[in-house]
Computed example of a mutant assay.
Amino acid sequence: MSESRRIQAERIIDAPAEAIFDVLADPRRHSEIDGSDSVRDALVSAPERLHVDSTFTMRMQVRPPNLHSASLLQVTVAIINRGRISNTVTEFDEPHAITWRNDFGRHTWRFELHPVPGSPTRTLVRETFDYSTNLLPPLLEAVGFPARNRDAMHDTLDRLAAAVGATV
């Protein structure tokens, strides 16, 4: 994995890793935690609980929230895919890590959960967007996608904390 094409964000969430993992493993809750505001809801055919090699399809925003080139690219991809993006789970190590690959662009999203030593109810959560495997990494860079994702990832972690009842 190329370090230069990997974006990370992390925060400590006041919840046990199992509770956090339960939210991440349920695609029906992904729109609730998505900090980019581009994920809508999971299609009915999505599994209630993910596992390695499972696929799930999310409805995506098809109207740009602004005219930033990254937003326009994201909406264009969603339109090409009829407002849907499919993903495949490539890692499922409950309750420590989950990774899924975007089946269109081939980039991955990974969440690592590490219990905070000495605290059974606090977890360090690290989210990684790895676009080194994307079909066109230079295009993502040209439109500013990595920087926009970094900001959205911090929002995702805040929303994940709220979803498990932690103080944001």
Rank of each mutant, 00 (worst) to 15 (best):
L43E: 14
E3P: 02
L24C: 02
R59T: 08
A46I: 03
D37F: 10
V52M: 10
S132G: 10
E141A: 09
W109E: 09
D53Q: 13
N66Q: 03
H30T: 06
T128P: 00
L139V: 15
Y131A: 03
S71D: 15
N134K: 09
A17S: 11
D41E: 13
R59W: 00
D158F: 03
V39M: 10
S86T: 14
H154W: 10
A152F: 09
Y131W: 03
P95C: 01
D34R: 02
R110M: 07
I33C: 03
H154C: 06
F104M: 13
N102S: 07
R122Q: 15
R106Y: 09
W109K: 01
E127H: 05
P120Y: 02
R28P: 07
A161E: 05
D14N: 13
E91V: 15
E91S: 11
V44Q: 12
A163W: 06
F145K: 09
R59F: 01
S71P: 01
R49E: 11
F111H: 12
L140M: 14
L160V: 04
I7L: 06
S54T: 09
S4G: 13
V89T: 01
N149I: 12
A97T: 14
R101F: 05
A19L: 08
P120H: 04
A9M: 08
R11Y: 00
D130H: 04
L135R: 15
E127P: 01
R28A: 14
M153T: 11
Q74E: 13
V23Q: 06
H107S: 15
A142D: 03
P64R: 14
S45N: 07
E94I: 01
L136T: 14
F145I: 15
D37S: 12
D103R: 11
